[in-house]
Nucleic acid binder design. Structure first.
Lengths: 209, 209, 209, 209
DNA sequence: AATGAATGAGGGTTCATTCAT
DNA sequence: TATGAATGAACCCTCATTCAT
């Protein structure tokens, strides 16, 4: 029985290692960037030693790729479901989607990814491509889809949906970066809720027929 | 001809070297990031050897700081002048400012800085602070100033200027990053002009009284 | 056989490395001086690679300090015991102490330290201070103590003990340096034993009441 | 006339360069040792630039040799004259010689050489050999000569002159080093005069028939 | 599966030396 | 003769990666 408990504990431990290391790596990469982040740091945070990381990932670069790819899919899926599951008016859908998106902003883990992508896309074209295909393109399809439906239904005026995509999501992305990079230097904290409200209002007024 | 090249090479005096090295460093940092960019690369681009860099900058970090600080002031000043020099209606001022800002987007040199800042602000708080004070804060003051004047003059409806600041500038910043990071993966090139037009229209409609 | 070598190599654990590296460093520093001695040389002598040294010492300077400090204490203690353990006449004690001291002269390891100290004391005041406090001062206390006792007991005439300290020990120190620096250029090898005998005789005659 | 003055001034300047640089180099080498002393430092002290040094010396090593060799001959000659010029009793000659020697101790320039030799003899065998031949051997010849004459004349007892040579000069050499390396760490300054007096007394008593 | 001692290639930095002016 | 900008080899140090245990 004791042996059985042991075995279970060890198995769970082993299964848990991969996400634990990814989590630790995401934190560390997010704070310092890919190059400046040492595997020793990641290992310490994950509660293992450097050598152990190599049992789960062939090298630092692959670990980085895993960090990026495995941390995002759930979020995208969530977003797609918000839209697909309903047949609400486009403005309502857009609002819900942005509010869902805005929840990521303060998330200490996933929220670090955009900064990472921006910093390292040049050095890791493979990651950039993956991120573009799996996150950005899907996100853009979601949003432009809503915009198109809104136009078709007469809920939005005739707008350039590809361009407006930027107007819609950019403020949230910039807010995400701001929180991590500049809020500490500013007099007041960034009021994410107010920003969302204000931005949504601007969008609704701005796109109204 | 060889003699001529030599002469030219030697004519380049101390005062020419500094901007040459900064220029080369900006390119290199912009492409690969601070840590991944080797001094050898910078030196080669600047047409000198590694040792020469140390005649002009005490170390890599100070070179980085110089790159950031010396590349920005002129742009900010330009922006401030666009506004200060006129007493036009706020919407017109806003339009002119954004169009000026948009010109930076394709600039191969200065346009690389935002990415750099985002990537390295965490590792160089001093630089983050400098950038925040000298670029972001001044830019924000410019824009919120225009917004406030517009509200006061009845040209804009009552809006949250601090939040709207994000809605106004974020699309341009994201477009800047997009150009460098994702355009290559997208089917079509990003039409900056269309984006500006569309975004301005959205803003004008969205903030109209 | 290869397996055996391997095993031996791996059996050497952390605790064995430190003295091995210190020993190698002492040899190397002793031969070439601090600045001229490359870490690669030390590593090769210690049978490790450069990187390994940094697992045991934070940098070259700290390695140097360790070399000095860890190589000396045993010798001093030995000297103090020679004196403390007995209540012999002062001349006898002095003789024993000098003979003990003279044993260091040909020692290839510890014997290199005085040269090192002389060469680097200016660059490493901390080391100079340590050496002065832990070696020189203690040695001086030992010798002046014997001299004072000898005077008090009427075994020596009234002498300036602080000045005589130099007359007592200097010849041994100079002999130590001579062995390493000039013996090779001289016609005959330095006869340390004869030097000791002659010097002790001089001292005994010279300090006799 | 002005031209003439100029010419004279320039010639004098040029003739003065060599000793100026040697002087500056001796100071610098004496303070930091050969390796740790940068040519930039020497140049600055000599009031010239680095390049100028290469007009007078082919490289750093030759400059070092010049420093050693040109700084010593005068002193040796002085010592030899003190002895050769007289037919005084050996004890008196010895006393005069040691007092002459002791004058070097506080000399800030020449006094730095022994430390330099000790530090670098291993790295520059050529210099060690030169110093041994031109300084040490001649000094030893002087002193052992006096000792032999003293024995022959019945002024000294039968002693081992080669060994006693160390007993005679070592205290002065150690005092020289002490002044530069450890006096700053000691409670009291080293009283060179007292040391000479005490040492001479010891010698005279110790070698008396 | 996990460790952690060891490696070694690579980068930042220094500085003796060169050379056009 | 003197300068000082430029060079490049050499060295310290870091850290991703390996591997015996």
């Amino acid at each position: 029985m004791a042996a059985d408990t042991q075995a279970t504990r060890w198995r769970r431990r082993k299964d848990a290692r991969t996400p634990e290391i990814i989590e630790a790596a995401l934190e560390c990469f997010g704070e310092r960037g890919f190059a400046a982040c040492r595997l020793d740091d990641i290992a310490r945070r994950a509660g293992v030693t450097k050598g152990t990381i190599y049992l789960y990932f062939p090298n630092k670069e692959e670990l980085f790729k895993a960090v990026i790819s495995r941390s995002l899919v759930p979020r995208i899926v969530a977003g797609e479901q918000v839209v697909a599951a309903s047949d609400l008016p486009a403005p309502v859908q857009l609002e819900r989607l942005l509010l869902t998106l805005a929840e990521i902003i303060p998330s200490s883990t996933v929220g670090a990814i955009p900064k990472l992508i921006i910093a390292e896309a040049g050095n890791f074209p493979e990651i950039a491509r993956f991120y573009f295909d799996e996150v950005i393109s899907r996100g853009r399809r979601l949003i432009t889809g809503i915009l198109r439906r809104g136009i078709a239904r007469g809920e939005f005026r005739e707008i350039d949906v590809d361009a407006t995509f930027f107007s819609v999501v950019a403020p949230l992305i910039v807010a995400l970066l701001w929180k991590r990079l500049f809020e500490v230097h500013d007099d007041a904290a960034l009021d994410t809720a107010a920003l969302c409200r204000s931005h949504l209002q601007l969008l609704m007024h701005g796109m109204a027929p």
